[in-house]
Amino acid sequence: MIDIPITIIGGYLGAGKTSLINSILTGDSPPANLAVLVNDFGDINLDAKWIKEQSPDGKIIGLTNGCVCCTIGEDLSEALETLRAQLGEFPIEHVLLEASGVASPKKLQRQCSYPGYSPRATFVLVDAANHDKQCQDKFVGYLVKQQVDEADYLIASKLDLAPTFTLHGDNIGKVLHKPNIFSPDYDQQDTAETTANPHSHGHGFASCTLPQIAQVNINHLRALCDALPSTVHRVKGYVETDQGLQLLQRVGDALTLEKVEQQTATPPEQGHLVFIYIDQQEHAVRQHLQQNLKQHWRFA
């Protein structure tokens, strides 16, 4: 029998794990036969109820943190055993696990390698509005950075509240824009070191640089960026627009355009954009770019 895949949703308190799970359950096509394991931390349990009400057929099991001095009464294994025991009644094909806000994604991923189950990608949500503050907090600063470092993919939330959001650490390339987390793109884990599974091989990232050949209307530019596939993690570069030369940065959902004052900055000889995306999706991404950007950017 094939192992049941477990997708982990991590991230610190308030990063929007529950909203994400809820949007999956109420979205256009929630995956069939999905079991959701939600973390039950005191008043967060309210969320569990909320999720349940919105999901008539999903199977939800609440987790508590198990025992504190030891692992007797380990909730995760109990929940996994319960699901397995009921496979006849509920043919589960996929498990979505909401990590506790204080969990290490790496550790949790190791724990999801369990008889009958295998970990899939770990998505860590980052609260864009509070990321800076959290990273400096004397109690959770380390933890929040650790969660970012250990993620396979990152999803930034609350970007509307933080238009100038920048992620700390080296994982900038892992930020996804409105991903469909069940897409086969994410079947493999990103980095081998986040798992004890010797069979996993991760994604690499590829990039391409497109020189600009024609000025673009700034609103059109925004629309182009909005339409980019979620496999494009990051875009950066200078763009000649009808409102002058702009420094464009797009991380996850966040697009920032900053007008470049030609007197103060060294103007680039020519506008250009750098796109960073999952290498396995190279073909699809390039096809998308060519179709939509060829009026203004040159393709090799």
């Binding site: 308190l13 931390f41 008043d43 504190v68 506790s100 290490s104």
Partner: peptide, 10 residues
């Protein structure tokens, strides 16, 4: 590093 047993805010 050690662990938190619940988020400090909780």
């Amino acid at each position: 590093h050690g662990e938190w047993l619940m988020p400090p805010e909780i």
